[in-house]
């Protein structure tokens, strides 16, 4: 409950003292909420284009289902791959917990096998893209120390500039994010290594209001070192459509729910 209570408290504080400057932690918490937790549930058809420095492209098409459980930050994710042909029918399920390691399962259609997969490294690449598992399903406020570096304008939007330093050793040493002051979506993020060299850049290329929720519908992650990039389009985004709990089970890993996966 910790997660949502703090948000509720934050929202109340906001109303009472509208003029007061929120802390960096508050801003990041609200940003994570807007980016990863919008609505009670979500369905989207997602296209990922993996583009190497020579311009050669690979593509992944998937249906993404997500449901929030309670107010504690617990979520479940279901991903079904439509393309490419070689992995078509593969389904991937995550039960995400805020305070401990996620449970992950994968269904491999060629041998009709549901297998639990080790989930230790959230910084591993998601299906070969420039996004990590953590980029796809979220991190926690307390994983980093945050400081507010200023208020600016980015592409015509008012933003907070936040600097975040990971508390434990991960593949980046510093992250700078530009967070929309009104919608709280991250519009840009830059990851740096210990020498101050830029590693990756995230860009929100298109933001739209869907069912009352501001949503990043086009995004890009660029690997500054290799020149590889991943462009993601969220199409057919819907919120609060009644995704039920039983969907996140072995049954539907094996046979995708036709109503949602199309």
């Amino acid at each position: 409950m910790r997660f949502h209570h703090s948000l509720l408290a934050l929202a109340l504080t906001w109303t009472v003292t509208a003029q007061a400057q929120p802390t960096a932690e508050d801003i990041v918490a609200r940003s994570l909420e807007a980016f990863y937790y919008a609505g009670e549930d979500q369905r989207a058809r997602v296209t990922m284009r993996l583009i190497n420095p020579q311009g050669k492209e690979r593509q992944r098409e998937m249906t993404l289902l997500r449901k929030n459980f309670g107010g504690g930050g617990e979520q479940r994710y279901y991903t079904y791959f439509h393309e490419p042909d070689d992995i078509k029918g593969t389904a991937f399920m995550v039960w995400k917990y805020p305070a401990r390691e996620d449970d992950r399962w994968i269904f491999i259609p060629a041998i009709q096998l549901v297998r639990r997969i080790a989930a230790d490294d959230k910084r591993s690449s998601f299906v070969g893209s420039d996004f990590t598992y953590e980029d796809v399903s979220g991190r926690e406020v307390a994983d980093e120390t945050h400081s507010l570096r200023g208020e600016e304008t980015l592409a015509g939007r008012p933003v907070y500039r936040i600097e975040s330093i990971p508390k434990t050793k991960v593949d980046y040493a510093r992250r700078v994010s530009w967070i929309d002051r009104q919608r709280f979506l991250p519009l840009k993020e830059e990851y740096y290594d210990v020498r101050g060299e830029r590693l990756r850049t995230f860009n929100a290329d298109e933001v739209q209001e869907v069912n009352g929720y501001w949503t990043v519908t086009r995004r890009t992650m660029r690997d500054a070192q290799s020149g590889h990039r991943t462009e993601v389009a969220y199409d057919e985004v819907e919120y609060n459509v009644g995704v039920t709990e039983d969907l996140f089970s072995e049954r539907y890993l094996r046979r995708p729910p036709q109503r949602w996966v199309r």
Partner: peptide, 10 residues
């Protein structure tokens, strides 16, 4: 027992 011991390494 299986575990991811580094990025993309299991």
């Amino acid at each position: 027992y299986s575990r991811e011991i580094a990025h993309d390494t299991t």
